[in-house]
Simulated assay, not measured.
Amino acid sequence: MEDRIAHQETILIMEEEAYASREAWAHAIGLSQAVHFELQTHREQVYAHESQLHAHQTQLQLQSTLIQTQHQVHETRFQMQQAEMAELRETDRRRQAQMVETLRVMRDMRREMSDMQAELLALRGQQRARQPGPDARIPDHQDASGDADSHT
């Protein structure tokens, strides 16, 4: 009987241990699944953050490209404006030179006209001085040859 009781006690202990093992196993499985789901959630969050990071990197690259392009456009415009300004300065310099030349030619022409006007007035004065009175009918040929020499 003692063996039987010991046997019964052993069975009872084994059943309790089996029950505790099954409970521990079920608890471990539950914890394992919880940890698995938590890891899965963290993994998905990491993927989401990586996607956001990639999107931000792409956006930064696009903004950098845009800034570089805008800088190149501004630089090109600046160079074009500088070239246009240089061309305008050169055109202005040529026109000023033309104006100076035109003014010089006009000054020379004015001088010549003034000289011609003085000569014309002198000739008119000589012509009046030589005009004979109402009685004189014979021209003075010596004065005529002298007038011709004064024109040259």
Rank of each mutant, 00 (worst) to 15 (best):
A144Q: 04
Q127A: 15
H36Q: 13
R43N: 12
L120T: 00
Q72C: 09
L123S: 06
A122F: 00
E16S: 04
S145W: 06
T58L: 13
G125Q: 04
M106P: 00
T10D: 12
A28C: 03
D3I: 12
P139A: 13
A83P: 03
D135K: 07
S64W: 08
L66R: 11
S150L: 07
W25Y: 11
H7L: 15
A83R: 10
S114L: 11
M106T: 02
M106L: 14
F78G: 08
P132R: 01
L66C: 09
D149T: 14
E23I: 04
A129H: 09
A148D: 07
M106I: 12
T58I: 11
Y47W: 11
A129V: 10
Q79A: 03
L121T: 06
E75H: 10
S145H: 06
Q63Y: 07
T76E: 15
S32M: 01
Q79Y: 01
A144S: 05
H56T: 09
V46Q: 05
Y47T: 15
E9L: 13
H27K: 13
Y19P: 01
Q52S: 04
V73E: 10
Q70K: 08
G146A: 14
Q127E: 10
L121V: 08
I67W: 10
G133R: 03
M80P: 06
V35E: 11
H54S: 15
A6V: 11
